[in-house]
Design a binder for these strands. Structure first.
Lengths: 248, 248
DNA sequence: ACTAATTTTTGATTTCGATCAAGGTCGTTC
DNA sequence: GAACGACCTTGATCGAAATCAAAAATTAGT
């Protein structure tokens, strides 16, 4: 259901950050044209930093294409990724003018940006944009909490399996490549980025990926191209109950 | 600033879950009386479960007094706490009718509840309640992300110091007991609950608390009563930069 | 095509926190 | 006030992941 809806919605109002999530049926013409007028695009290369934590940030944005990460770094250099931005995800907090995290492109990335002040004005006048933002934020909070369980209690192998499952699942919904259980995708993250996401070292990530390959849970071609022959089998390795997590 | 404001706001509208956060100056009389009419109270004893993950949940609520925890459990029993509910915190997701987490009282707990349906109706008619909820949710998301850094990258000692710092800071603002740097409080959590929060075992929690005591970072009277003689010293142990985290 | 740089894999060793196992303290009940 | 149970501390040992250290595979540059 959600994948085709998303497709249609994206086609019909490609850049409205709210409509990206396929709920903007309620967007009215003048609101949409307001958004149209204030929007602009930015593109980034893999590895490029979109914004550093603490920098002034006078815009909010929605990912159009590509993947970015949110991360936090301690003074001594330890870093932890705290979020993954996929197409349609929103970044930037209305009402706060400094970035709280480092935002980095891990693939080629296009974002649809809106200057903060006019966007906030529009939000004031258009309650359902705020409502939609609330829903999106609650989803992010659920995702963050699921990630807390992963970081606090899962083994290295479970962590890797969980990350692969998340990417595979998203890829399956996005590209409809989920022919009878087999899923194929390219890892959008380096081993180091995966390590920062999972709270591991890159060596451990590499070893566990090798182990999953050895055990036939995944197949690897090169370093990035992954085939999951049996998604259920992968899910069994995640430690999650068979169901889709918090959204029971 | 915030502590006295909170006091005043709480006095003058004790149970509105929004006003608890000291921003409900915009609450109008009829909205307040709507809330008054639909509110009811529930009380729990320490250790009692407010609701189990997956259970039907037809209310939303705000903590009036006491402390509760949000936690997730894997089938094999591993559990991870994903949130701490302090007075004025809000629980329950508008638009979702099943709990996503276990909610447990760790002290005597009083909550101010509102049936979900009428509360959602009121939200529809009163945009600034939604706005306030959005702000609160964004704060929670920031807190969750700070916790992800802790879970993924901090040492056991840093984790304990961070938790003590959070409780101490909150206690200082709440009870104004922050006389020249020295802070005194009672731990509202058992060692096991702390372990579940920090992604550790209770033995490690106990050992690290002993170590901080041995090193003079904290003083302990009995098992629960803590004195922090020098808050800066405690902060140095957390691994955070001296400043207040994401709210830079 | 060849070199250089980056990323990944694999191996050897160490370390931090988990696990296993007693004891100890405190509060409650009979 | 003895006995029970809940909670906490401490010790000994183990193990999973980190760290240290090369080598292999890829990618990029000239």
């Amino acid at each position: 259901m959600s994948s085709s809806e998303t497709q249609i919605a994206n086609q019909d109002c490609a850049d409205c950050p709210i409509r990206h999530r396929a709920v903007c049926a309620r967007c009215e013409a003048d609101e949409l044209s307001m958004l149209e007028q204030m929007k602009y695009y930015r593109s980034y290369e893999p590895g490029q930093t979109v914004i550093w934590s603490g920098d002034r940030m006078d815009f909010v944005a929605s990912v159009v294409e590509g993947i970015a990460t949110l991360s936090q770094t301690m003074e001594d250099g330890r870093t932890q990724m705290v979020g993954l931005l996929l197409p349609s995800d929103f970044v930037g907090r209305p009402g706060r003018d400094h970035a709280a995290y480092d935002v980095t492109a891990t693939t080629r990335l296009t974002m649809c940006c809106f200057r903060r002040a006019p966007f906030e004005d529009l939000m004031q006048r258009t309650p359902h944009i705020g409502q939609r933002l609330l829903e999106m934020t609650l989803d992010e909070l659920d995702a963050a909490r699921e990630w807390m369980l992963l970081l606090g209690r899962k083994t290295a192998r479970e962590k890797i399996a969980s990350l692969l499952a998340i990417i595979a699942r998203r890829d399956a919904t996005l590209k409809l490549s989920a022919t009878q259980g087999q899923i194929v995708f390219d890892l959008p993250l380096t081993r180091e980025a995966m390590a920062d996401y999972l709270g591991l070292t890159l060596e451990t990530v590499s070893r566990q990926i090798s182990a999953l390959k050895r055990d036939g849970v995944i197949e690897l071609e090169g370093k990035r191209h992954v085939t999951v022959p049996d998604f259920e089998r992968l899910m069994d390795e995640t430690g999650d109950d068979s169901d889709g997590g918090v959204f029971a």
